[in-house]
Amino acid sequence: MSIQHFRVALIPFFAAFCLPVFAHPETLVKVKDAEDQLGARVGYIELDLNSGKILESFRPEERFPMMSTFKVLLCGAVLSRVDAGQEQLGRRIHYSQNDLVKYSPVTEKHLTDGMTVRELCSAAITMSDNTAANLLLTTIGGPKELTAFLHNMGDHVTRLDRWEPELNEAIPNDERDTTMPAAMATTLRKLLTGELLTLASRQQLIDWMEADKVAGPLLRSALPAGWFIADKSGAGERGSRGIIAALGPDGKPSRIVVIYTTGSQATMDERNRQIAEIGASLIKHW
Score class of each variant (00 low, 15 high):
2 S>C: 08
4 Q>A: 13
5 H>Q: 07
5 H>D: 13
8 V>D: 07
8 V>G: 07
8 V>I: 15
10 L>V: 08
11 I>V: 14
11 I>A: 08
12 P>N: 13
13 F>S: 08
13 F>V: 10
14 F>W: 06
14 F>V: 10
19 L>I: 08
20 P>S: 09
21 V>R: 03
24 H>P: 12
25 P>T: 10
27 T>S: 05
29 V>G: 15
30 K>N: 06
32 K>E: 13
34 A>G: 07
35 E>V: 04
36 D>E: 15
38 L>C: 08
38 L>V: 07
39 G>A: 15
39 G>D: 10
40 A>V: 06
42 V>A: 06
42 V>S: 02
42 V>G: 01
43 G>V: 13
44 Y>V: 07
44 Y>H: 03
44 Y>S: 00
45 I>G: 02
47 L>E: 05
48 D>A: 08
48 D>G: 05
49 L>R: 02
51 S>G: 12
52 G>R: 04
53 K>Q: 13
53 K>M: 12
55 L>E: 08
55 L>R: 10
56 E>W: 04
59 R>A: 04
59 R>P: 07
60 P>T: 14
60 P>H: 11
61 E>A: 14
63 R>L: 08
63 R>W: 03
63 R>Q: 10
64 F>L: 02
66 M>G: 06
67 M>V: 13
68 S>R: 00
68 S>N: 00
72 V>E: 00
73 L>Q: 04
75 C>W: 07
76 G>A: 13
76 G>S: 11
78 V>G: 00
78 V>W: 01
79 L>Y: 01
79 L>P: 00
80 S>D: 11
80 S>Y: 13
80 S>T: 10
80 S>L: 12
81 R>H: 10
82 V>W: 06
82 V>L: 05
83 D>R: 02
85 G>W: 05
85 G>I: 04
86 Q>R: 13
86 Q>H: 12
88 Q>F: 12
88 Q>I: 09
88 Q>L: 12
88 Q>C: 11
89 L>H: 05
89 L>T: 04
91 R>E: 05
91 R>M: 05
91 R>G: 04
91 R>C: 03
92 R>V: 15
93 I>V: 11
93 I>R: 02
94 H>E: 11
94 H>L: 12
95 Y>S: 02
95 Y>F: 15
95 Y>A: 03
96 S>W: 09
97 Q>S: 15
97 Q>H: 15
103 Y>S: 05
105 P>S: 06
105 P>R: 05
106 V>A: 10
106 V>N: 06
107 T>E: 00
109 K>M: 14
109 K>R: 10
110 H>R: 09
110 H>Q: 10
111 L>R: 07
117 V>S: 01
118 R>T: 07
118 R>S: 15
123 A>E: 04
123 A>G: 06
123 A>D: 02
124 A>D: 00
125 I>T: 06
126 T>A: 12
126 T>V: 10
127 M>R: 10
127 M>G: 06
129 D>A: 00
131 T>P: 02
133 A>C: 05
133 A>G: 09
134 N>A: 03
135 L>W: 01
136 L>F: 00
136 L>V: 08
136 L>C: 03
137 L>P: 00
137 L>F: 07
137 L>H: 01
140 I>S: 03
143 P>E: 04
143 P>G: 04
144 K>N: 14
145 E>L: 11
145 E>T: 11
145 E>V: 13
146 L>P: 00
149 F>C: 08
149 F>R: 06
149 F>L: 10
150 L>W: 11
152 N>I: 10
152 N>T: 11
152 N>Y: 11
158 T>C: 02
159 R>A: 05
160 L>A: 14
160 L>R: 03
160 L>C: 13
161 D>G: 02
161 D>H: 03
163 W>D: 09
164 E>V: 01
165 P>S: 08
165 P>K: 04
165 P>L: 08
165 P>T: 13
166 E>C: 14
166 E>W: 12
166 E>Y: 14
166 E>V: 12
166 E>D: 12
166 E>A: 14
167 L>R: 01
167 L>Q: 04
168 N>C: 04
168 N>K: 02
168 N>H: 02
168 N>V: 06
170 A>P: 09
172 P>R: 12
172 P>K: 10
172 P>V: 13
173 N>R: 10
174 D>H: 03
174 D>V: 03
175 E>N: 13
175 E>P: 11
175 E>K: 12
175 E>G: 12
176 R>S: 10
177 D>F: 01
177 D>G: 02
177 D>A: 01
177 D>E: 01
178 T>M: 02
178 T>I: 03
179 T>D: 00
179 T>K: 00
179 T>M: 00
180 M>P: 01
180 M>G: 11
180 M>K: 15
181 P>G: 03
181 P>N: 00
181 P>D: 00
181 P>I: 03
181 P>A: 07
181 P>H: 03
182 A>R: 15
182 A>E: 15
182 A>P: 07
182 A>G: 15
183 A>T: 12
183 A>R: 10
183 A>Q: 15
185 A>V: 07
186 T>G: 15
187 T>K: 00
187 T>Q: 04
187 T>N: 09
188 L>A: 08
188 L>I: 13
189 R>G: 13
189 R>C: 13
189 R>D: 07
189 R>E: 09
192 L>R: 00
193 T>A: 14
198 T>S: 15
200 A>E: 15
200 A>I: 07
200 A>V: 12
201 S>Y: 05
204 Q>G: 04
206 I>M: 14
206 I>L: 14
210 E>G: 08
210 E>R: 14
211 A>S: 14
212 D>E: 04
214 V>C: 04
214 V>M: 09
215 A>L: 02
216 G>R: 09
216 G>A: 09
218 L>G: 03
219 L>A: 03
219 L>M: 12
219 L>W: 02
220 R>G: 03
220 R>W: 02
220 R>A: 03
220 R>T: 02
221 S>Q: 14
221 S>P: 10
221 S>G: 10
222 A>W: 07
223 L>N: 03
223 L>W: 02
223 L>R: 05
224 P>C: 04
226 G>P: 07
226 G>C: 09
226 G>V: 03
227 W>G: 01
227 W>L: 00
228 F>E: 04
228 F>S: 07
228 F>V: 07
229 I>Y: 04
229 I>R: 01
230 A>V: 05
230 A>S: 05
232 K>L: 00
232 K>A: 00
233 S>F: 00
234 G>E: 01
235 A>G: 09
235 A>V: 05
235 A>T: 06
236 G>S: 07
237 E>G: 15
238 R>A: 10
238 R>T: 11
238 R>M: 13
239 G>L: 01
239 G>Q: 02
239 G>A: 04
240 S>M: 03
240 S>W: 00
241 R>G: 04
241 R>Q: 04
241 R>K: 06
242 G>E: 00
242 G>A: 11
242 G>S: 08
243 I>L: 12
243 I>V: 12
243 I>W: 04
243 I>G: 00
244 I>Y: 01
246 A>E: 05
246 A>V: 14
247 L>Q: 01
248 G>R: 00
249 P>W: 04
249 P>V: 07
250 D>H: 12
250 D>L: 10
251 G>I: 07
251 G>Q: 15
251 G>D: 10
251 G>F: 07
252 K>I: 11
252 K>R: 12
252 K>Q: 11
253 P>R: 10
253 P>H: 10
253 P>L: 09
254 S>A: 15
254 S>D: 15
254 S>I: 11
255 R>S: 03
256 I>G: 01
256 I>T: 01
256 I>S: 01
256 I>A: 06
258 V>A: 06
259 I>F: 08
259 I>M: 09
262 T>A: 07
262 T>D: 08
262 T>R: 11
264 S>R: 04
266 A>E: 13
266 A>R: 12
267 T>A: 11
268 M>G: 07
268 M>I: 11
269 D>E: 13
270 E>G: 09
272 N>D: 05
275 I>V: 00
276 A>D: 10
277 E>V: 12
278 I>M: 10
282 L>V: 15
282 L>R: 03
283 I>G: 03
284 K>R: 13
284 K>E: 12
285 H>Y: 15
285 H>R: 12
286 W>G: 01
